[in-house]
Each structure stands twice: as structure tokens, then as C-alpha cells.
Computed example of a mutant assay.
Amino acid sequence: MITLVAALLLMGVMLGAVVHLPAPVSLAAAAAIGAWLLVFAVRERRARRG
């Protein structure tokens, strides 16, 4: 339960920070984070197969 509360708190802080940034900067940051997560997922999947 504490993990859920911490995750929601962190999400609220991050969304609050994004509101103050211009839209192109927010979209670029979101794209970078998405690409990083995609690379991480591919690396994890390859590591489990091998």
C-alpha cells in the first residue's frame, strides 16, 4: 500500500512539473523516456532468453 501511495505522489510531482514546461519540451522528454523504456524492455527480454 505504501508503494502505491509513493507512486501516486511521485506521479503528482512529475505532472506538476510538466505543466510548467512548454509542450515541445514535455513531448521531447516523454519521447526520450519512452525510448529508454523500450530499450530497457528489449535488453531484459534478450537477457532472459539467453
Rank of each mutant, 00 (worst) to 15 (best):
M14Y: 05
G34P: 00
L21Y: 03
A31M: 05
A29M: 09
A29S: 03
L21V: 10
A35E: 10
L4P: 00
A32D: 06
P22G: 02
A23H: 08
V18N: 06
V25T: 12
M1P: 06
M1W: 11
R49T: 09
L27N: 14
P24E: 01
P24Q: 02
V13E: 01
A29G: 09
M11P: 00
R46A: 14
H20D: 11
A7S: 11
L15H: 04
L8I: 11
G50P: 02
A32Q: 05
G12P: 02
A23W: 06
V5K: 13
L10I: 15
R48N: 04
V25N: 01
I33V: 15
L4V: 07
L4S: 10
M1K: 11
A35N: 05
L8C: 07
M11K: 11
L4H: 02
R48Y: 03
A7H: 08
A41E: 09
S26H: 00
P22Y: 01
R46H: 07
A32N: 02
A17L: 15
H20K: 14
L21C: 06
R46S: 07
A29K: 00
I33Q: 05
A30I: 09
L38Q: 03
L38S: 07
A32S: 07
A17W: 06
M11A: 15
L9H: 06
V25Y: 04
A31P: 00
E44P: 01
V13W: 05
R46C: 04
A35T: 12
R46I: 13
G50S: 08
A47N: 05
M1D: 08
A17G: 12
A6V: 10
R49H: 05
S26G: 13
R49N: 03
R45F: 12
V42S: 01
V42C: 02
V39T: 03
A6D: 08
A30K: 04
L10G: 06
W36L: 14
R43A: 15
P22V: 00
G50H: 04
L8T: 08
V18C: 08
G16Y: 04
G34K: 05
G12W: 03
L8P: 00
L21T: 03
R46G: 01
L37N: 07
L4N: 07
E44C: 09
R43P: 01
L27C: 04
E44H: 11
I2N: 12
L15C: 05
R46M: 12
G16A: 09
A32E: 06
G16C: 04
M11C: 11
V25C: 01
L27R: 13
A28S: 14
L10F: 11
L4F: 07
A30W: 02
V5P: 01
L8Y: 09
W36N: 11
E44S: 15
M11V: 14
H20Q: 11
L9V: 15
L37V: 10
V39Y: 05
V5E: 12
L8D: 06
A17F: 10
M11R: 14
V18K: 09
P24L: 00
L15A: 13
T3V: 09
M1F: 09
A17E: 07
L21H: 03
A7K: 13
V39E: 00
A7R: 13
L21I: 08
R49L: 13
R45S: 15
L8H: 06
H20L: 15
L37D: 02
F40P: 01
V25I: 14
A7E: 11
